[in-house]
Nucleic acid binder design. Structure first.
Length: 492
RNA sequence: CGGGAGGUAGUUCAGCCCGGUAGAAUACCUGGUUUGGGACCAGGGGGUCGCAGGUUCGAAUCCUGUCCUCCCGACCA
């Protein structure tokens, strides 16, 4: 198979697809809009999942699991949520197939096996979870409930893209219940900070924390907090959301508790989620025309060692030395792979691991053994250095830390250079078309204006940053008074 | 759902216009030589040409229908 990657400049979409497919993160499947996550891609997801899971547990959350199917009557209980998702739901209507009398060897849906009530395949789990919480909550002593679920969900999107928008995807969804509004808001904000911490410190993707405008808010939420990242083509990507749900779901599912004064109150709620879409963000934030570039902290393989030898004798000597190096690296908790596959030559391996984004490569041959050195190549900058084998594990460990930091700094410098203020409509349109990125501009605060801007330019308000400085100004579009700038961008 | 492209070997594709019973590269298998940036030689296996009809002596090729995929757009918590 040809392993050539379309360059970003030639066709950004094709470049992205090439990276996913040739980097072996995922494949297309026989199912419309659904992808197969390959072992390498899934290993990446596992590292992300494990890091997040620990962060959730450290903030007091526990995991549980709720059903894939949501009876239609439950699904429609919270009207705004149901309405928001209605047009992208997959629905189970029957529970049996039978032999098709008209087509030998073929099956047909058994019309006798129609369900009394249709089952919606969850696009999100608020409904089934709040229906359950009703049974769990009687008193303020039952609160808070801090539950997370790792699950798959289905959203029947019209158009799909690998990782960014697939019909079925993997995610986590936290669903919490609280006695007070204040506590729920604090929870939603806390989880937003957890997401930002993960994105920046693990994925090396800088994000802007903010609040969504009413138009972009989650269906059924009072407030949607989000982290927004910037991709290399100047488009924004929503990387995670955390919602303050008010008492909307408690009211829809009649979830009340007795407070200390024995007064019945509706429960306050949050939900928050990130998905395999983060992998799309990771790919587009860092990679180049040679392939993936993965940040060390979540790279499935952090270090690959490639032997270079002539004959079995040299191979045996290298093997022995490499085993010792591997032990040292593993002792420091480094994920290392020794690729001594004899069917592929070194050059092929170099290209292959660059494609797959392995952060550090060690190449070691007979001439290195003689000098007690090794060639160390880093994926992000393509730098190569010959380094002494004495203390190599410590050297590599430091290098991994350095790469992690360098990747973040680079992405942040790019992101910061692409937040541009616009002070007139002409400037706004020009920036969108010629530069892209986030555009910081005054907005009169109305949904109508946001909609009109979207209509004209395809740009939406990505977020109103947290702790946004208040500043008198005039709306870029309507000219009406504005109290602050907000961030606009074209988005995925 | 509108526009475009496409479905032929594991993969990428040629063949189709002008019908004659399927080909390249790569990957794979065997043996050998190789190994510091995608090795080479020799031999070998592998395809109901998306599916269903039709025209024809004969269909990957022509006609009709249908399913699916990708890209652009609309939509997208």
């Amino acid at each position: 198979m040809s392993k050539e990657i379309t360059s970003r400049a030639t066709d950004y979409s094709q470049w992205y697809n090439d990276l996913i497919l040739k980097g072996e993160l995922a494949d297309y499947s026989a199912v419309r809009g659904c992808m197969v996550i390959k072992p390498y891609g899934f290993a990446l997801w596992e590292h992300m999942r494990d890091a997040l899971d620990k962060m959730f547990k450290d903030t007091g959350h526990v995991n549980a699991y709720f059903p894939l199917f949501v009876p239609k009557s439950l699904f429609e209980a919270e009207e705004k949520n149901a309405e928001g998702f209605a047009k992208e739901c997959a629905i189970v209507t029957h529970y049996r197939l039978k032999a098709d009398p008209a087509k030998p060897g073929k099956l047909m849906v058994d019309p006798e096996a129609k369900l009394e009530e249709e089952l919606v395949i969850r696009p999100t789990s608020e409904a089934i979870i709040w229906n359950t919480y009703k049974d769990w909550i009687q008193s303020y002593r039952d609160l808070p409930i801090l539950v997370n679920q790792w699950a798959n969900v289905v959203r029947w999107e019209m158009r799909t893209r690998l990782f960014l928008r697939t019909a079925e995807f993997l995610w986590q969804e936290g669903h919490t219940a609280h006695a007070t509004k204040q506590e729920a808001i604090e929870e939603a904000e806390k989880m937003l900070h957890v997401y930002a911490d993960f994105a920046e410190n693990w994925m090396a993707v800088p994000v802007i924390k903010g609040v969504k405008s009413a138009n972009e808010r989650f269906a059924g939420a009072e407030d949607t907090y989000c982290i927004e990242a910037l991709m290399q083509d100047g488009k924004a990507l929503q990387a995670g959301t955390s919602h303050f749900l008010g008492q909307n779901f408690a009211k829809a599912f009649d979830v009340k508790f007795s407070d200390k004064e024995n007064k019945l109150e509706y429960v306050w709620a949050t939900s928050w989620g990130v998905s395999t879409r983060l992998i799309g963000a990771l790919v587009m934030a860092h990679s180049d025309d040679q392939g993936l570039i993965l940040p060390p902290r979540i790279a499935p393989t952090q270090v690959v060692i490639v032997p270079i030898y002539k004959g079995d004798e040299q191979k045996a000597q290298i093997d022995a030395r490499v085993q010792a190096i591997m032990s040292e690296l593993k002792a420091l908790g480094i994920r290392v792979k020794y690729d001594d596959n004899d069917n592929a030559r070194p050059g092929w391996k170099f290209a292959e691991y660059e494609m797959k984004g392995v952060p550090v490569r060690l190449a070691i041959g007979a001439r290195d053994l003689e000098k007690n050195v090794v060639e160390v190549a880093r994926r992000d900058t393509k730098e190569k250095n010959v380094v002494s084998l004495d203390g190599i594990a410590g050297y590599v460990n430091n290098l991994l830390t350095e790469i992690q930091q360098f990747m973040f700094d680079k992405a942040k410098a790019y992101r910061d250079a692409n937040i541009t203020p616009a002070n007139s409509w002409e400037e706004f349109e020009k920036l969108l078309d010629e530069k892209g990125g986030f555009i910081s501009a005054h907005w009169d605060g109305t949904p109508e204006t946001e909609e009109a801007i979207k209509e004209k330019t395809k740009a939406t308000i990505r977020c109103i940053p947290l702790d946004n400085p208040q500043e008198e100004g005039k709306c870029i579009f309507s000219g009406k008074p504005s109290v602050q700038r907000v961030l606009f961008a074209r988005a995925y």
